[in-house]
Design a binder for these strands. Structure first.
Length: 492
RNA sequence: GUCCCCAUCGUCUAGUGGCCUAGGAUGACUCCCUUUCACGGAGUAGACACCGGUUCGAAUCCGGUUGGGGACGCCA
């Protein structure tokens, strides 16, 4: 057997943002292609006209780009061009091709026109369920003459094209790349639809035609497609086409072990982007949902994954998407960033939050982000920290009330404000701040948390947070004074 | 209901018949660092779903039970 070129595809239907489960499918295909020196194709499954939109397609493409999963063939994000010689890559533009294949299947008796109404279908379904059988379509039109059926169609009677499966009494054996041998009895499915009554082809059909014509060698997709694979094998067989190799990866589940749903938080890559996750972190995390590093490393780059990727290490059971661990991973990536890079990534979030910062120079930006780096789990956390530096957002938090009620607090704060006032210059060095703190201590006799917590409240409005000796040098005298007097005023 | 898939700490997983009194990561807890909170460091608790079989030997192979999930669409 000749060595076939490795060609894999990711085939989303453009009905919204890219789901993290979809992203993982795309990723595994991408990794496999890159590891094998093969090609990674983007095909758009938009035969469900009602739900597919051009807008969604753009979103999916931009999510893939954000993740860094670049495709070799398929539509490009400008919406105009396509790359590759097996196009078009949008199924809605390939209708003629499917129709030809459908005609072929009708002609050789592997498919037929069916005129059953929804009511008839439902009655049959109920009957089979009552008998404890598979509720699969068994159509009286199965053996109708093709010409007769076409006449019927011409007369205006709505009909679909169904695949003829009832006579295929045998087991289909799939040698799944991740599951091993899977045996499907042919009666697991009924006579499924190939062409809708409006002439539009459906998923299972387009998928086979395209995978064949686009010379796809391996199909890595989610486990939910397993029953579809039987239908697709039947079509391949009917057309005497060679099967690609299939691998069905596990499902991505929520904490309640159900398919991931929006109820429990973000599910799309775009949402994670908005919540301040780094694409590298999301990718790394998602890689580990069903695949493991041969040396059990947890943090590794896309490049390293490409080098090491092997379908043998794909895990067959469902994986719960642990948002807490994702957060941890994101914080690891954040900390590995240079101050400059982290600032660049954080800045857009600060702008979006409309924060007014005490200084505008880059030097200040980098040294401030260096402080917050070890506190941040997501870029959005940066907003919280910088908000503390924005005077217009300053407020005395409820957690501060206990500290404010302490007996020495008032004296400490009066002294603190007094010393700030006499300080020469608008900013403070760490040493200058420590000196002031020391003087407050000596003059008031307060020490320990009686000293530090009131000052912290006077700086950030709450008793816990970043070290003051690091924070104060990032602030201005004007700002500190204003805050101190505000807190002092609240004591009266 | 029918068919298919799956089954190791709460979670992600390592493990392909002896290296397993089951390893790592995360989360939890404790301690250290720290005049707060984090970060960091050290440590503790925590799993082979169950029952049979094969074998000198089973987390690993086989069968069954149970549990979970998926599919049963003119969605993909």
């Amino acid at each position: 057997m000749s060595q076939k070129k490795i060609r894999v595809r990711f085939a989303p239907s453009p009905t919204g943002y890219l789901h993290v489960g979809g992203a993982r499918s795309a990723l595994y295909n991408y990794l496999f292609a890159r590891n094998q020196g093969g090609e990674f194709i983007l095909r758009i499954e938009d035969t469900d006209v009602a739900r597919s939109t051009e807008e969604s397609l753009k979103m999916v493409m931009s999510d893939l780009k954000w993740l860094g999963l670049n495709w070799d063939e398929g539509p490009q994000s400008d919406g105009q061009t396509e790359i590759g010689s097996y196009g078009p890559y949008k199924q809605s533009e390939r209708l003629d091709i499917y129709l030809d294949v459908a005609e072929e299947l009708l002609k050789i008796g592997k498919a037929y026109y069916c005129f059953m109404t929804d009511e008839e279908l439902e009655i049959q379904r109920q009957k089979f369920i009552a008998e404890g059988k598979n509720p699969h379509v068994s159509s009286p039109y199965e053996n109708w003459d093709l010409e007769k059926a076409k006449q019927e169609l011409k007369s205006g009677r709505p009909g679909v094209v169904r695949f003829k499966s009832q006579h295929l009494k045998k087991d289909y054996i799939l040698n799944d790349l991740v599951r091993g041998e899977v045996r499907f009895p042919s009666d697991m499915v009924g006579d499924f639809v190939l062409l809708r009554s409006d002439g539009m082809p459906v998923y299972n059909f387009c998928c086979v035609v395209d995978d064949h014509l686009m010379k796809i060698s391996h199909v890595l997709r989610a486990e939910e497609h397993l029953p579809n694979t039987l239908r697709q094998m039947m079509i391949y067989e009917a057309m005497s086409w060679e099967f690609p190799l299939f691998g069905h990866i596990s499902l991505v589940l929520d904490e309640d072990r159900q398919k991931m749903s929006k109820r429990r938080g973000a599910t799309s890559c775009f949402q994670f982007k908005e919540e301040g996750y780094l694409p590298e972190a999301l990718l790394n995390f998602v890689t580990l949902l069903g695949w493991s590093h041969p040396e059990q490393k947890e943090i590794f780059s896309l490049e390293e994954t490409i080098q090491l990727f092997n379908v043998n290490r794909l895990h067959p059971s469902g994986a719960v998407f642990d948002r807490v661990k994702l957060k941890w991973m994101n914080s690891q990536y954040l900390r590995a960033l240079s101050n400059e890079d982290l600032w660049k990534k954080t800045e857009p979030f600060l702008k979006a939050a409309n924060l007014k910062l005490p200084y505008e120079d880059k030097q200040w930006a980098f040294s401030s982000i260096a402080v917050f780096k070890t506190y941040m789990e997501t870029l959005v956390d940066g907003v919280t920290f910088y908000t503390a530096l924005d005077d217009s957002k300053f407020e005395i938090k409820p957690e501060a009330s206990e500290v404010l009620a302490w007996e020495p607090t008032k004296v400490v704060l009066s002294e603190w404000a007094e010393l700030l006032k006499v300080h020469v210059g608008e900013s403070f060095t760490e040493a200058e701040f420590l000196k002031i703190q020391e003087v407050v201590k000596v003059k008031t006799g307060a020490k320990g948390k009686n000293l530090f917590q009131p000052i912290r409240v006077a700086v950030i409005g709450q008793p816990h947070g970043t070290e003051l000796k690091i924070l104060v040098p990032l602030m201005t005298k004007t700002s500190l004074l204003k805050r101190a007097s505000q807190v002092l005023a609240s004591l009266k």
